[in-house]
Write a protein that binds this DNA or RNA. Sequence first.
RNA 1: UGCCGGAUAGCUCAAUUGGCAGAGCGCCUGACUCUGGAUCAGGAGGUUCUAGGUUCAAGCCCUAGUCCGGCAGCCA
Length: 568
Amino acid sequence: MISENSAVETDAGSANDYIREAIRKDLRDGHYRNVHTRFPPEPNAYLHIGHSKAIWINYGIAQDFGGLFNLRFDDTNPEREEQEFVDGIIEDVRWLGADWGDRLCFASDYFDQMYDWAKDLIRKGKAFVCDLSVEELSRTRGTLTSPGENSPFRNRSVEENLDLFERMRAGEFPDGARTLRAKIDMASPNLYLRDPVMYRIRHAEHHRQGNKWCIYPSYDWAHGLEDSIEGVTHSLCSLEYEIHRPLYNWFLEELGIYHPRQIEFPRLKLTHTVMSKRRFIELVKGGYVTGFDDPRMPTLVAMRRRGYRPEAIIEFVRRVGVTKADSVIEFHVLEDCVREDLNRAAPRVMAVLDALKVVIENYPENRDETVQAVNNPEDPLAGSRDVPFSRELYIEREDFQENPQPKFFRLAPGREVRLRYGYFITCVGVVKDDDGNVTELRCTYDPATRGGDSPDGRKVKATIHWLSAAHALPIEARILDHLFKASNPDDVAEGESYLSNLNPDSLRVVRGFVEPSVANAQPGSVYQFERLGYFCVDKDSAPNALVFNRTATLRDTWAKIAAKATPG
RNA sequence: UGCCGGAUAGCUCAAUUGGCAGAGCGCCUGACUCUGGAUCAGGAGGUUCUAGGUUCAAGCCCUAGUCCGGCAGCCA
């Protein structure tokens, strides 16, 4: 149980923002005795990264104040909603770590109560049945700068309204024939107060209610009621509902029922992506991505598939914080959170994505051995593993330059480097094909440097990753980049759509190799391929055909050094 | 020619009641290192949108502007 005092005295965490501030004041002033929030998605799409902000704010605040959090499906429009999305959303919210206890709620469960309350409003003379068509209603609503006009049906008697409303519910009228409207003020500067629609007729099957109803409540009518019924204290929603708040309050006041407080916050916006259901569908239908869970999409299913962990997403929304300013966050902030999380958690493994063969000339032909490799230098408990070593190896083509540029410290003719956890090797020869392409390196190794240390104390300037060619497992690596090349996909020339900003290189498929220790890795497992980045086993992966998504790159300081060293 | 909201470092955000404008990321420099990663240390970076006003004192309060965003579904 939440006592009055415990709620007030609870340390609201390190986060301090205008919402928490307002809640603290409400508790201090005795407006509410506890804190109860909710996340109310409509089950008409998969959740995206933007929703994680709403979840974090609602759940995080409930947590901070020792309060309760509900997961509620705002399923008031049967034409858009499906069970598939209910299931998907539940999975996503749980994955993020929000805990709604036994309070999994559905707005549609309150339809009876809402209907009764609507009749109360009719009896009070505060609602009426209107016969205007969509077009007529739109025309008489007025504009942003001019008042609307009263509906000719505005002064129907209570009896007539009640009768008509009951017949609406009974299914006597076709879709769109009539609506129930609140009677407020057609001259209000706030358009949402100009006799808003409370019920519309929709002869449609609801994913939970079946055909029980043919009238459905509108968002404005339903939402405050849902909050009130559930005992929500603070209804935290995004900024576009700010202008709806007077209406939210009006319904609760006219009904005289328990009155939660609505507070708004700005939506999360990210560069290099889009965040609307309509566009998700366009991207999928147009074949620009493979589905809602394509790892390039900003949906949570996609990010999960890509290897992002909930810890990283929570950290991201925490960093973004809560303010009233509407803003766009750089995508790299998210990536930085992902890197920070994975650096801590991901086991290291060696993989070569652009293989160059190396033959160790002084290593016996028929021998192989194993060397010990540390699984995660950030985590002493992660232990170590055996990695096979033999005469023929693969290294990254990029780790060799025949004519090394300034500040390039890796392999070059005559130069010695360390094979990570292996031996020091020196390049003694370069084999080329007829076109002059390097096809193979001839090297020697120093047996005394086994494990990577030289007994004579000599240093090498670089350590590179490698694979024993005979033991390496072939993999497909999907190198992912921003879906849109422009920071703002809507930044396009006249007549063009955001689709012209699609990044043609957002997916590059590469054939590479990985060490045998990951042979049985399950989809979802994330590794750091040493020096290459973080990679996650994709769901398309099979035991003999491993597929990895590149979750994120490492911070690439070499790219900066190379750029500086290159003239021009 | 409406209503509502916003504007502080490159970006995202802080700044008790009006009381020395700070942090994270990014950037630069250095240290260290068996990932050119990570980590650590240091540094640069501000006319707090503009113009007035109140005050001992203004990012904060007042006035007038400027710019940006949202709003005219029987969507949520």
